[in-house]
Nucleic acid binder design. Structure first.
Lengths: 215, 215
DNA sequence: CGGCAAAATTGACTTAAATCAATTCTTCCG
DNA sequence: CGGAAGAATTGATTTAAGTCAATTTTGCCG
């Protein structure tokens, strides 16, 4: 599942949800048919009732909160194979959207084995706490370097890293503006640390330098 | 830019652990004798092996990470009644220190009922994710307002709020410098939103205004 | 293809918060 | 009590990142 780009399949005009009904098609306990979401569509919204956890089959998801004036903080990105949708109670405190064409398995609470859930929840917790360090104490270059390192690692440590999300998404994840994200990318490129074969693809040329920048 | 100066982090000189031995004294499953830590002493360190969860009997704790150059991010404060020490694996990824004289119950994994742990872990997760919004997208005044509101709420919503931590701790929690924290406190005081009967005590005079500031 | 809209980049300028630098409070210990 | 050390406050100045404003690039669709 290397290619995280939205495949250029023709998508339904209006709602992003293509096949939520398939969820009910065959209900085997462990693996249900995946639910599909097209790029930019909502998976759940703040205030909505939780309907379980989501495991990504393919694609990518952003989980975020909004302030009343529209400022957005993306708290996490999720890639293929990852599980998201943890909440403290039965209501969602966040929004989740498909970044590109995405298929997810919805795991209803009936399926939940706490013993399997806890490790996943704890992993999310440590991830979030580590991200706090980035947002609280690192400068723009360090944030981008940490982000790229993380993305690379989660994609198997290959040189070529897929960035399914826009610069705006990256900015809202790292607490920066689009312009600052863009400028840092340019600087890293100019320094020969990364190459940008295309907008949504980064090639890490100097891994160690990037790692060091992430501090 | 972040502050690059390490020196304000006081590393625990020699463990101020007063009564860790009591941890081994009587190992009843449910409630053990509390372990005491004096102000500023280490409860656990990054890299150390996890020995369970910690429930605070009295006092307050800061959980934090450090960058190599000494920058510190406090990811959470914990007050009496709260549980901390969750990790994704058997090794601590964070440091924990007593802010003031503190008593904790150490709950060894043997005692752990996943069914009770998961909700606590999830609460920590949502808390951390909400803090990401503060660090990523809120300005200094909003951060302090959010912090004070949170502390007040966790202390039962009384007007008088206890701040066991120093300005430096608050700064390292909110991603601000001591100076900025101090200036915002002064401004809030001058505006009549809060009063400062003493350094470690805040009285919230205009609750609604504070809430609105937290955005 | 070609043209249009959205996304990204780049540059000039502004600003919020950091840094640097004195004071002024606390606290606490002899 | 007194005075020293650490904590907090306050002020002057700097700076990293934000804002505003054009371009330029990309990718989409007829």
């Amino acid at each position: 599942m290397a290619n995280l780009h939205a495949p250029r399949i023709s998508l339904p005009v209006h709602p992003g949800l293509i096949a939520r009904t398939s969820e009910f098609a065959h209900s085997r306990p462990a693996a249900q048919a995946p639910v599909f979401f097209s790029a930019g569509t909502e998976i759940y919204a703040q205030g909505e009732r939780c309907s379980g956890l989501y495991k990504i089959e393919f694609g990518a998801v952003r989980v975020y909160r909004l302030l009343s004036d529209g400022r957005r903080q993306i708290s996490s990105f999720h890639l293929a194979g990852e599980t998201f949708g943890f909440e403290a109670d039965s209501v969602h405190h966040f929004f989740a959207e498909a970044i590109c064409a995405t298929g997810v398995h919805v795991m209803h609470s009936a399926n939940n084995l706490s013993s399997e859930l806890l490790p996943l929840a704890l992993k999310s917790l440590v991830r979030a706490q580590e991200h706090l360090l980035v947002l609280g104490r690192q400068n723009a270059i360090e944030r981008i370097a940490a982000f790229l390192s993380d993305m690379a690692e989660r994609q198997g440590g290959l040189k070529q890293v897929d960035l399914p999300m826009s610069r705006a998404d990256i900015g809202d994840y790292l607490g920066l503006t689009i312009e600052t994200v863009s400028r840092v990318f340019s600087r890293l490129k100019q320094k020969g640390v990364i190459r940008l074969p295309s907008l949504r693809c980064v090639e890490i040329a100097k891994w160690q330098v990037l790692q060091d920048m992430a501090a």
